[in-house]
Amino acid sequence: MASTAAPSAIPPADLESFSSRLKSSTRILALLGAGLSAASGLPTFRGAGGIWRTHDAMQLATPEAFDTDPGLVWQFYNYRRHMALAARPNAAHYALAELSGRKEGFLTLSQNVDGLSQRAGHPLEKLQLLHGNLFDVKCTDFYCNYVQQNNYTDPIAPALAIPVEGTDPTSFEARHAVSSALLEKKTRKELDIADESIYLPSVPAGDLPHCPECKRGLLRPGVVWFGEALPGKTIDTVNQWIMDSKKIDLILVIGTSAKVYPAAGYVDMARSKGARVAVVNTEQGDARGLTKDDWFFKGDAAIIVPEILKGVIGDVR
């Protein structure tokens, strides 16, 4: 049943068998990854964009990086917020939101932090965010528990304003290209403005977002950084949903390899409850581990997902 066809040529037998299963399913788990938002023009985390291509994004996603240079980290996350706000939910986001609304026993676990599922109208009570949200912020002061959700201010602080690309390319590149030159603390005069390695001006801590409640701590993005625990409430909610299920009919794995735990474990947990697996991704390797009773649909999620869900939700956007 596994398919490697192009998006426009999903084998009718695969589409029919999947649609039949979907229609009869009352308990569905969806696992979403970065590939879902790629069709909206958002780069994956590790490929966070050309203007950040000279820096390892993972080195900016740690508590230690924020302690060392919060200005640099906030420039990176302000850029990611800006890009996410400029993007629009694609047809797959809308299709999943519609399916979630139609299927009572539906739960989505998303590894994405871009807010596109929410903006597509995905029911919040059926959406769990494994890695947090770019648009939540929280105080870093040990004694303060301030959290603000859905902060869409762009830029989040005036000092982080992104110049309009094209109006002054030199200024744009200088503000946003992280390079070895920055890491080596070179001065602006030592750098070639035409080179990719361009100095990124520092932003003083006093110009970064501060907590409006305690007035002491810096605000930080409400995402899970490397070295931090995943949100316990989210993990507990998903685990409880699975344990409460006498049977799970289907697990949708969309835009993710699901090879990293704990996400990888949910496929096995769903299988143990009787679920059949449907993978939608661009990589053939993600078909490994599927059985003859599962499905692999290769291609762009924005094209594939609305097509395979059409039997239940009809045409969306």
Results as ranks from 00 to 15, higher is better:
Leu183Thr: 06
Ile162Leu: 11
Lys185Glu: 09
Lys126Asn: 01
Arg188Glu: 02
Phe135Ser: 06
Ile156Phe: 14
Ala92Lys: 01
Glu190Gly: 00
Lys138Leu: 15
Gly101Arg: 11
Asn112Asp: 15
Leu129Val: 08
Gly115Ser: 13
Asn112Gln: 12
Ala177His: 15
Leu130Val: 12
Val178Lys: 10
Asn145Lys: 04
Leu107Ala: 04
Ile193Phe: 03
Ser110Gly: 15
Pro158Val: 00
Thr140Ala: 14
Tyr146Cys: 00
Leu134Asn: 03
Asp192Pro: 02
Val178Asp: 06
Glu173Thr: 05
Tyr94Glu: 03
Arg88Pro: 02
Ser179Leu: 02
Gln148His: 04
Ala177Trp: 14
Asp154Ala: 02
Ala92Cys: 11
Ser100Cys: 13
Leu99Glu: 01
Leu191Cys: 03
Glu104Asn: 10
Ala97Ile: 00
Ser180Gln: 08
Leu191His: 00
Ser117Glu: 14
Leu124Thr: 12
Tyr152His: 13
Asn150Gln: 05
Glu98Arg: 09
Pro163Asp: 12
Gln128Ala: 15
Pro201Gln: 02
Thr108Ser: 15
Pro201Ala: 01
Ser202Glu: 15
Pro155Val: 05
Thr108Cys: 13
Ala159Gly: 02
Phe172Asn: 05
Leu182Pro: 00
Leu124His: 08
Ser110Asn: 06
Leu129Asn: 14
His176Gln: 06
Leu183Pro: 08
Asp154Gly: 06
Glu98Asn: 05
Asn151Tyr: 01
Ala157Gln: 03
Asn112Val: 09
Pro123Phe: 00
Ala177Val: 12
Arg88Val: 06
Ser117Gly: 13
Gln149Ile: 00
Asp154Val: 00
Arg175Gln: 12
Phe142Leu: 09
Leu182Thr: 02
Ala161Phe: 04
His176Tyr: 11
Leu134Lys: 03
Phe142Asn: 05
Tyr199Asn: 04
Lys103Leu: 12
Asp114Glu: 14
Arg188Met: 06
Pro163Ala: 05
Gln111Asp: 02
Asn133Ser: 13
Ala95Val: 12
Asp195Cys: 11
Pro155Cys: 10
Lys186Asn: 12
Gln128Trp: 09
Tyr94Leu: 15
Cys144Gln: 00
Pro163Asn: 11
Pro89Cys: 05
Asn150Glu: 11
Glu98Met: 04
Asn145Gly: 00
Thr167Asn: 13
Gln128Met: 14
Leu130Asn: 07
Ala92Ser: 14
Thr108Leu: 12
Pro158Thr: 01
Gly121Arg: 10
Glu190Cys: 03
Ala174Glu: 04
Lys103Thr: 15
Leu96Phe: 06
Glu165Gly: 09
